[in-house]
């Protein structure tokens, strides 16, 4: 018998829900995440077709699509580094498939699912709240939908995805998640949330 897992923000569900409507915050825990290091263009293409989602060719973007593993996102983290994000519980299968696609090319596929948890932020004030602790220009003209940056939010390293007009996805290290939740609660106070 396996114990039920506890997500990093399990204790914050109610407090984060109380930030609505200024900010709608929801954790999406346990997603499968794999860090892929690969630079060979053939291997990148093979991995993309194995997932059904082409790897993002442009820095600071992500690609999304559906394939044999359901809805999958591939995030650009560096010139030869990507993060594959898929629904929970698929990390072992995806790791095998990606290793097969890598073949004899130089690179690595590592399961990092436990490293980060996912927080989805939406609402009319989402850019204002993020601007309290993030120096990246998030105006739609410079950060359109599809943007994916690694940066600091309130001194915490995050991966920030722009997934819609007023929708952002934040991947934060599990041990920093509660700090970030507390910071978000505080940053929302001036937008009509009871402190």
């Amino acid at each position: 018998m396996t114990a039920e897992p506890t997500s990093p923000l399990a204790g914050w569900t109610d407090r984060l829900a109380a930030l609505a409507p200024a900010l709608i915050v929801a954790e999406r825990p346990y997603r499968s995440q794999l860090t892929v290091r690969v630079s060979d263009p053939d291997a990148v293409a093979a991995m993309g077709s194995a997932l059904g989602v082409a790897f993002p060719p442009v820095p600071c973007t992500f690609s999304a699509g559906s394939g044999p593993f359901g809805d999958v996102e591939v995030l650009w983290l560096g010139p030869d580094e990507f993060l594959v994000v898929a629904p929970p519980g698929l990390q072992t299968e995806i790791e095998e498939v990606l290793r097969g696609a890598l073949g004899s090319h130089r690179g690595s596929v590592v399961d990092t699912s436990a490293q980060r948890t996912t927080v989805v932020l939406e609402g009319p004030h989402v850019r204002d709240v993020l601007a309290h602790g993030c120096s990246v220009d998030l105006h739609p003209s410079s950060a359109p939908t599809g943007t994916c940056v690694q940066t600091l939010l309130a001194r915490t390293g995050i991966v920030l995805q722009v997934t819609g007009a007023d929708t952002f996805t934040v991947l934060v290290r599990s041990s920093f998640a509660e700090y970030l939740a507390a910071w978000l609660s505080d940053a929302c106070v001036e937008y009509g949330v009871a402190s």
């Binding site: 820095p59 600071c60 560096g78 010139p79 120096s135 990246v136 940056v149 690694q150 940066t151 600091l152 001194r155």
Partner: peptide, 17 residues
Amino acid sequence: MQLIPCPWCGPREEAEF
């Protein structure tokens, strides 16, 4: 705060470097 233009990521604040 000074912005440093990373050749991959574009201008970012110097605390990231």
